[in-house]
């Protein structure tokens, strides 16, 4: 069975990622051509405050990802705290309560691996600021599947460790400052 896959943008970040996302998501147009799937490491017991924070500031839709919902273009989906977020080949979202990966749940690697698998060359994955190496292996998977890898410039990142780890894993990734990531995404065209 084959089916056309619409594009998807996956973004992962940890320490400083909320501020970084505040420089990216509000710049995107309401008719952004792909779904945006986001993993930000947050303490597991804290209720997800990210959605209300971004909802007021963005033209794209912003919501917490729900199990089995079909991801729509022009909507940013945050992984709920304490669950991994994955995407299926038909564009529907899956949650999992599997063990922590890189000491995290949600983990960026889990999202990126599934994005690579489900969307292949139609995937764009972006690693932002953070103090660990989550996302590096997943970014490699995206690249191996023919997808597009973007890494926040470590020189400007709030914490450089995560972008640096991503670049060690994917030396060919496109390195961009936050403003450039925003305009880079805005230039994406509908598939």
């Amino acid at each position: 069975m084959t089916r056309p896959t619409p594009g998807v943008v996956a973004i992962g970040g940890s320490a400083g990622a909320v501020q970084a996302l505040l420089r990216i998501l509000p710049t995107l147009p309401a008719d952004f051509p792909a779904p945006i799937l986001i993993v930000v490491h947050v303490p597991p017991d804290r209720e997800n405050a990210l959605v209300p924070l971004f909802q007021n500031k963005c033209r794209v839709g912003v919501k917490e990802a729900e199990d089995k919902e079909v991801a729509q273009p022009g909507v940013a989906y945050f992984a709920p705290s304490d669950y991994h977020l994955l995407v299926e080949a038909d564009g529907s979202l899956s949650l999992s309560a599997d063990e922590l990966v890189n000491l995290s749940r949600p983990a960026i690697d889990v999202l990126f691996d599934s994005v690579a698998d489900a969307f292949g060359s139609a995937a764009t994955a972006i690693v932002l600021t953070g103090a660990n190496h989550d996302g590096a292996a997943g970014l490699s998977a995206v690249v191996a599947a023919g997808g597009h890898a973007v890494v926040e410039d470590p020189a400007e990142a709030y914490v450089a460790a995560m972008p640096e780890a991503a670049l060690r894993a994917c030396p060919g990734a496109t390195v961009l400052r936050l403003d450039a990531i925003a305009s880079h995404l805005s230039n994406l065209r509908a598939p």
Binding site: M1, T2, R3, P4, T5, P6, G7, A34, A89, F119, G120, S121, A122, T124, G146, H148, L188, R189, P191
Partner: peptide, 9 residues
């Protein structure tokens, strides 16, 4: 970004 037709691997 192009709409790739992906064969199941």
């Amino acid at each position: 970004m192009s709409a790739a037709l992906r064969e199941p691997g």
